[in-house]
Design a protein around this nucleic acid. Structure first.
Length: 486
DNA sequence: ACTGCCGGGAG
DNA sequence: CTCCCGGCAGT
């Protein structure tokens, strides 16, 4: 059915594309603790189905995206919607509104990505490698929480799941938003999950806040850490909503049919907070994955694709093997492409929020100015860049986000010049990013001179001698560190 | 002293 | 190639 359709449509990801993508992304975070083969476990239909949507979004552009989504029966929205949620973090929430506006967005349940890794593609992905140890910890926590909070088998119909929400609403101003909030709250007031129904209809502001709380709780408890991250970052700026702060709501949700509730809340909240989410949509954030390998500027629309590319082309590993030690993660970066407005994009373009980027103390300070240079690079890389990117690159704002462990915890982005091979000749990519004159051709004039010592802590410093096996290979070999470049 | 890593060597 | 390490230089 849909999966078929999807598979035919998708051009980038190969077999098991969607599943691969999601779960792998998760995996990449937990490189040390995950079970590599977990990706494969799981019903393909859900995966492929989801991947379809994703592919559409990535490859088809806006129109195709909307269209394709509409083509999906709403009843099926469970799976596809779930996928959308998962993908959202990749696409920078760009699809979320889509899903919401079409009423497709139904379920953020991890059940769609079965297996340990699959459970939390989102959270894993964004907890991400910024701090391997921390990530693993967080991810494990999430997993644990998920395991007990959202038993996939317990799905009961819930009153709130049938709340009529207008679907064809257009993004509107704050006034509308509040009205909508009130409306939704009113309709939801019969739902047991509304803690203070009485306040809903007449007092928009507190109501909204309450909703935010519920939202945050649902996000963080039922979907993923990433969710809470995205939610706080994009939609609910004022509520970072760590699980702790929402203990009550969370518990409440958990005690009842958390899954369905969350689903409903999620759906409803898209209307509630139509402003932020649609804005994302408006900006048409596209996420591409760019190979950072030296002289290879391949850009793919799926992480699995880029990983496979790296694995096969650069790492010389078996392409059929799903196993990955995560090495590929160091060789690609996530690129967010803003299709629409540059100015507006700017304000939304800081995807890396300190909220979820569990502050690893050890990582180097982020470099700014990355996006532009990457942008430049991308223009020059059209030979490899597939359709969408190459078309849009010249006129769009590109935003780089890396999924790498050494990525600084700080809000801004950093180009990960991590390619082990590419590092020595970083002049093409990285040197451009760095405003250091030292790394520029000027240094060429004095061959033989050592390049100035970098500020960043290297593997040795970061991991210590006792964890030498965590060092990058270069560090192990007493070469210039490839992981923490300066 | 510690650290990063160049240069060079072994396999 | 990969892997290792002496030794230099910066901190």
């Amino acid at each position: 059915m849909d999966s078929r359709y999807i598979l035919d449509k998708s051009s980038v990801g190969s077999r098991g594309g969607g599943a691969d993508f999601n779960c792998r992304a998760g995996r990449s975070v937990l490189r040390d603790s995950r079970v590599p083969t977990a990706d494969k476990s799981g019903p393909m239909p859900a995966y492929t189905n989801g991947s379809v949507l994703y592919k559409f979004v990535m490859d088809g552009g806006l129109a195709a995206e909307v269209k394709s989504e509409k083509s999906f029966p709403k009843g099926n929205g469970l799976t596809s919607g779930g996928r959308i949620l998962h993908d959202m973090e990749k696409t920078g929430l760009g699809d979320q509104k889509d899903a919401g506006s079409n009423g497709v967005l139904k379920k953020a349940s991890p059940a769609h990505c079965p297996g340990i890794n699959g459970q939390m593609p989102g959270s894993l992905m964004h907890l991400d490698i910024r701090n391997p140890g921390k990530q693993a910890e967080l991810a494990n926590n999430f997993r644990a929480a998920q395991g007990q909070n959202v038993p996939p088998t317990e799905r009961q119909p819930h009153p709130s799941s049938h709340i009529p929400v207008p679907r064809n609403r257009k993004p509107s101003g704050h006034a509308d938003k509040e009205v909508m909030a009130a409306t939704v709250l009113t309709s939801l007031s019969t739902s047991p999950m509304v803690l203070h129904p009485s306040s809903a209809p007449t007092v928009p502001e507190p109501a909204s806040r309450g909703w935010k709380e519920v939202l945050s709780a649902s996000y963080s408890s039922s979907t993923s850490g990433n969710w809470s991250w995205d939610a706080s970052d994009q939609s609910v700026p004022s509520t970072p909503s760590p699980p702790l702060s929402n203990e009550n709501n969370k518990n409440f949700l958990l005690s009842s049919q958390a899954d369905d509730i969350c689903e409903d809340v999620t759906e409803s909240t898209h209307f509630m907070f139509e402003d932020p989410i649609p804005r994302k949509r408006k900006n048409s954030m596209k996420v591409m994955f760019k190979c950072l390998w030296k002289n290879c500027e391949k850009v793919l629309s799926t992480s699995s694709g880029i990983q496979r590319h790296i694995r096969t082309v650069h790492l010389g590993r078996n392409s059929d093997s799903d196993y990955s030690d995560g090495e590929e993660d160091f060789y690609y970066s996530e690129i967010e492409v803003n299709m629409d407005s540059l100015t507006e994009g700017m304000s939304n373009l800081t995807p890396t929020s300190p909220t979820t980027a569990a502050p690893p103390p050890v990582f180097p300070p982020p470099l700014t100015d990355v996006p532009h240079s990457e942008h430049i690079n991308m223009n020059g890389s059209q030979s490899h860049a597939p359709t969408l990117l190459s078309q849009s690159a010249p006129s769009t704002l590109c935003h780089i986000r890396t999924d790498h462990a050494y990525q600084g915890p700080v809000n801004h982005v950093r180009t990960a010049s991590t390619g082990e091979k590419r590092q020595p000749a970083s002049s093409t990519h990285t040197a451009v990013n760095k405003t250091h004159a030292l790394v520029t051709p000027a240094s060429k004039s004095t061959p033989g001179t050592r390049k100035p010592r970098g500020e960043a802590k290297k593997c040795r410093k970061v991991y210590g001698m006792e964890k030498k096996d965590m060092w990058c290979t270069a560090c192990r070999w007493k070469k210039a560190c490839q992981r923490f470049t300066d």
